[in-house]
Design a protein around this nucleic acid. Structure first.
Lengths: 197, 197
DNA sequence: GTCTATACCAGGATAGAC
DNA sequence: GTCTATCCTGGTATAGAC
């Protein structure tokens, strides 16, 4: 019998994680100290270390949440019937991002972090691989259904289009995080107008 | 009269910068300590600090070099006559990157760093703004020359296409840095096949 | 200008009381 | 589980000799 309920523990963990996300969004992973996270959460050092092994574990958990939800959003959208047109997937991804995280800067930080941190890199690799597989399958299915392509043709077309669709999603994330006057609707309109169906 | 020639100083600076770039590429800005840079350069702490105020200054200089050269490449390509087709600019940018830096991971790190570091952010903002202006002007000129669009039409089309071209360049950089089986030629072929002319 | 040795401190993590 | 107070390491930067 645990001394407190699992729900309580989970809620506290989440509280800490949310505070950490806010702090990281402002200052970045490294410039944000444990003291900052402690202050942001309104708790104390002891409370934090009761729920996380350390700063590294917090970063990991934040990463998993931010990046994992993106993949989940996509896979769900891909399973919908009728299928949304491929450019719609870019919108799904970015909607989910705004809803859960507020902005894309955490994701951009994660990409940068993947260079230095093996765990984050593994996470990012894994996500990119899943994204590639799911999006590729989606594009192929779209070709078959909408254009009556044979499976072989459809696969070839999908493979060809895939890197650009990934780039469209990545470009959105990067530009929304780092371009001063980014216009979300203008971007999505360009995707819809120019990327191949 | 300086005690050593300016050429000597510049060469040393460059030597240190190159060593730092190698180290940063492997381990990231933060996980790389001054001790690592010192070891990588084969010099000593005293030597390094004789040329740079500190680690921050080194990062700044690396950033300026990596990111500044990219913009230079593009602006030069854009001034060429006859104009390369717009997708060719993506190739120019990535060629320069490979030539100067070897891989794109430093650039991805810089993007992540822009969240936390005001100086880096200002640098990245500035570059994105120049890129936007130059590439936008280029796309407009291309529309006028190749398709006989009026200046107003050309400007509208360019504004519409611009975010996708930026995304194509950004996607290349990100995917080449973080996707295990990235295929450069496949990517560029997709850009050439699908992005609007 | 460059070297070695070292001062100094930020900040992650722990101890022990409650 | 949470708090406050504190320890201690890693890492930046400097001092002083050459």
């Amino acid at each position: 019998m645990p001394r407190v309920t699992d729900e309580y523990r989970a809620a506290r963990r989440d509280e800490i994680l949310t505070a950490a996300m806010r702090a990281f969004q402002r200052g970045g992973f490294h410039a944000t100290s444990m003291a900052d996270i402690i202050a942001e959460s309104g708790l104390s050092a002891g409370a934090i270390y009761g729920h996380f092994e350390g700063k590294h574990a917090i970063i990991q958990s934040v990463a998993l949440q931010v990046i994992g939800s993106r993949v989940g959003d996509l896979e769900r959208a891909m399973a919908r019937d009728p299928m949304p047109a491929p450019p719609g997937l870019v919108r799904v991804l970015t909607d989910g991002l705004v809803r859960d995280v507020g902005n894309a800067s955490l994701l951009v930080q994660l990409w940068g972090e993947a260079v230095a941190d093996d765990d984050i890199r593994a996470l990012v690799y894994g996500v990119f691989t899943r994204l590639e597989a799911a999006w590729g399958a989606y594009l192929a299915r779209w070709q078959e259904r909408q254009h009556g392509a044979s499976p072989a043709e459809a696969a070839a077309i999908a493979t060809n289009q895939l890197p650009l669709y990934l780039a469209a999603a990545q470009g959105f994330i990067l530009q929304s995080a780092l371009m001063p006057r980014f216009d979300r609707e203008k971007y999505l309109a360009a995707v819809e107008a120019h990327l191949p169906q």
